[in-house]
């Protein structure tokens, strides 16, 4: 079953066409990577799905047309974004950030969810009363991921989760993503680091200057000589 279905998506900022009419989809339970160089239109694609960028084309989530859905209603449908640059609330405490993730919920399960996040990221528990802005970059990325999970999403969108982080931290974050995926979460992973993203994913799309130029299973893409040359430096 297609969880997210995208038809002829175009994103245009003024005269600039950042995304030039792409089609792709995510099946429920899949991990799909969208890889490509800086400026290929990956983030614009995510922003359009989140209703944060001017766009045209058709977006369906769980069979529902997203045309009339506002950005602040997406989370109620089950879409959560871990934004590029993390977008944490730096003056609020770590715990307040996580509770913001559960803003749409009003039940006792919030507490168990919070404990789950603290088990996934013990460092967040140690610092739960600290202002989020005092965390290191890696901890902030964990917080952004934890906050997205607090909304109990059906689809998790990740925008460059590895950006600017030390390899060890990146590994820790991707290990958690693996765990979440094993629990059946559908994940759409936008990454410049193609090798990293494709190793985690089942399928991948390759984007170049606003178009999807290639799509295949992740293992096949990792073996593709063109991809190896262009994105994996091999």
């Amino acid at each position: 079953m297609k969880l997210l279905d995208v038809h002829n998506l175009k994103v245009h900022y003024g005269g600039v066409n950042a995304v030039k009419g792409i089609d792709f989809h995510l099946n429920a339970g899949e991990i799909v990577a969208l890889v490509g160089a800086n400026g290929a239109g990956k983030s614009s694609t995510l922003r359009a799905i989140c209703k944060l960028a001017p766009h045209s084309g058709k977006l369906f989530f769980d069979g529902k047309d997203l045309a009339a859905v506002k950005s602040h209603d997406l989370v109620r449908l089950g879409i959560a974004l871990v934004p590029e640059g993390r977008g944490i609330f730096s003056d609020s405490s770590v715990e307040e950030n996580l509770l913001m993730g559960a803003y749409i919920h009003n039940d006792a399960k919030i507490k168990t969810d919070l404990e789950k996040i603290y088990t996934l990221f013990p460092r967040l528990k140690e610092r739960n009363q600290q202002a989020a802005g005092t965390l290191s970059g890696g901890e902030q990325q964990m917080l952004a991921l934890g906050r997205a999970l607090m909304s109990r999403p059906k689809l998790l969108l990740l925008d460059e989760p590895s950006m600017g982080l030390a390899p060890l931290i990146v590994k820790a974050i991707f290990d958690v993503l693996k765990q979440i995926a094993a629990d059946g979460m559908t994940i759409f992973l936008v990454e410049q680091n193609a090798g990293l993203a494709l190793e985690l994913s089942m399928r991948g799309y390759v984007m170049e200057s606003g178009n999807i130029v290639l799509t295949d299973s992740a293992p096949a893409l990792l073996q593709n000589p063109q991809i190896r040359a262009a994105y994996l430096g091999q």
Binding site: H72, D73, A80, L81, G87, D91
Partner: peptide, 11 residues
Amino acid sequence: QNAEVAGLMGV
């Protein structure tokens, strides 16, 4: 602090 991200949380 960040109206756009708060919006994604449902605010």
